[in-house]
Computed example of a mutant assay.
Amino acid sequence: MTMTSSDKLRFGVDLVTFFHPGFWGVDGYDGIIAHSRAQPRAFWDKILDSVQASGVTGVELTFSPFNWQDAIKTYGSVEAFAAQLSSRGLQLASGFFAELEAAGDFTKPSAQTAIIDKAERYADFLTACGSDVMVIGAPLRQTLGARPVRFHDFEQARKIADFLNRLGAVLHAKGVRLALHTEAHSIFAAARDVDLMMLLTDPAYVHMCPDTAHIIVAGSDPIQLVDRHHERMIIAHWKDALGPMPADTPIDEHIHDRHRPYFCGFGLGRVDWPAWIRLLRDRGYQGWAILELDAAADPVHDIANGLTLVRQALLPIYR
Rank of each mutant, 00 (worst) to 15 (best):
A236C: 07
A247H: 07
Q286R: 14
L279V: 15
A295N: 09
A241D: 11
R283Q: 15
A296H: 05
E253D: 15
P250W: 07
E292R: 09
A275G: 14
D248C: 04
P261I: 04
H254P: 00
L293I: 15
E231P: 11
H259N: 06
W276S: 15
T308K: 10
I235V: 14
Q224L: 10
I235Y: 03
R270D: 08
A236Y: 08
G306N: 09
A236G: 07
H259P: 00
M245N: 11
A241C: 08
G267P: 02
A296C: 13
C264I: 05
D240F: 02
Q286E: 14
H259M: 04
W276G: 14
P246V: 01
Q224A: 07
D282Y: 01
G243I: 01
R270A: 11
I277R: 04
E231D: 11
H254S: 15
R260N: 07
L291M: 14
A295M: 06
W288V: 15
Q286C: 15
R278L: 11
D272M: 05
W276L: 08
A236W: 01
H230C: 01
H301L: 06
L242F: 12
H301G: 03
L225W: 06
I303H: 03
L225R: 03
V271H: 08
F266S: 09
E231Q: 07
A247D: 13
I235E: 12
I234C: 06
I303E: 00
I251C: 09
M245Y: 11
D298M: 02
A304D: 08
D272S: 12
A241K: 05
G267L: 03
C264K: 00
I234Y: 06
A297L: 08
E253Y: 03
V300Q: 04
L291K: 09
